[in-house]
Design a protein around this nucleic acid. Structure first.
Ligand code: FES
Ligand code: FES
Lengths: 145, 145
DNA sequence: TATTATTCGGACAAAAATGTCCTTTATTAA
DNA sequence: TTAATAAAGGACATTTTTGTCCGAATAATA
């Protein structure tokens, strides 16, 4: 809807990894997919993207897996994940699908759309993984249903 | 991104039809597709949906085409078009892709996401075709680039 | 009535997104 | 040094979305 499936899985995975990293636990793709209720192999693909973009850190071999250091949990905002996976259409694109969003030649929905899009961007830019992980930790929020 | 391509075309088409209906001009799919820069046959499919949902009115045969009566331009809000084409995932769905959005068992992004989603819904519910068509009429906005 | 212009509807095609499988590479530990 | 474990990466498969084509139905008009 708003984000692609890949992006949804990516965010859920990152939040789960962050949560476990708070306990210094490294987690495998299998565990992640289990905990966020996502297809394993597809999730693995998405984790590769997150790794390449330095959003999570991966370690190969036995005792390996994914982790996020405490500092990154604060500096990595959702906007970075969304951009890594879905690109910046969501930040730049025209709501009615014109080739580009341009205030000098706006579509009929431009003004109203830009308001919402800006709020969304701001929200994503201000939301850190740490913030999301702590709600989970306390048991107030969930990553699957 | 936010809306499907089909939905984007649907809104642009509806706005264009509204604009022309203000002059009592009925328009053909060919003309619409031309003016909103969309694939003709695909646009035709979408117009069928709009017709079935009583968003636009169609007339077959020579001198036929699509039109919207002046009253409908006010009563038809964007929310109706979006719902007809994309369904109500955009209004109901969880931002992180959980099976349903549920405040009693929220995902980590729930609160922040609901704010944005509500603003979006409100905006769509308050925006009429007439409103969008008039900006076009005056030459302040555009349907293609 | 025949012709023509138009939407409607179904079947098909292409492209993109989602998802799977299997081999390779790195690393650990016995 | 070998076996086992985990991520990386490429090829492939499925599903959904986007887009095309064509014949049927409808209505105006000559
Ligand atoms: S031009 Fe359409 S949203 Fe800016
Ligand atoms: S549960 Fe995720 S947005 Fe409400």
């Amino acid at each position: 809807m708003m984000f692609s499936k890949a992006c949804e899985y990516g965010i859920r995975a990152a939040v789960y990894i962050a949560l476990q990293s708070l306990d210094n636990r490294r987690v495998s793709v299998t565990e992640i997919a289990e905990e966020i209720d996502s297809p394993v192999a597809f999730t693995a693909k998405i984790l590769q993207q997150l790794t390449r973009n330095n959003i999570v850190h991966s370690v190969k071999g036995p005792t390996g897996g994914f982790e996020i250091d405490r500092e990154a949990m604060d500096t990595v905002k959702l906007s970075k994940i969304v951009k890594a996976i879905d690109g910046d259409k969501i930040y730049m694109g025209c709501g009615l699908g014109l080739k580009e969003c341009n205030a000098d030649r706006p579509c009929p929905l431009h003004d109203k759309f830009v308001d919402i899009r800006t709020d969304l961007r701001t929200m994503l830019q201000n939301t850190s993984l740490y913030e999301l992980a702590t709600g989970l930790e306390v048991g107030l929020t969930y990553l699957k249903r």
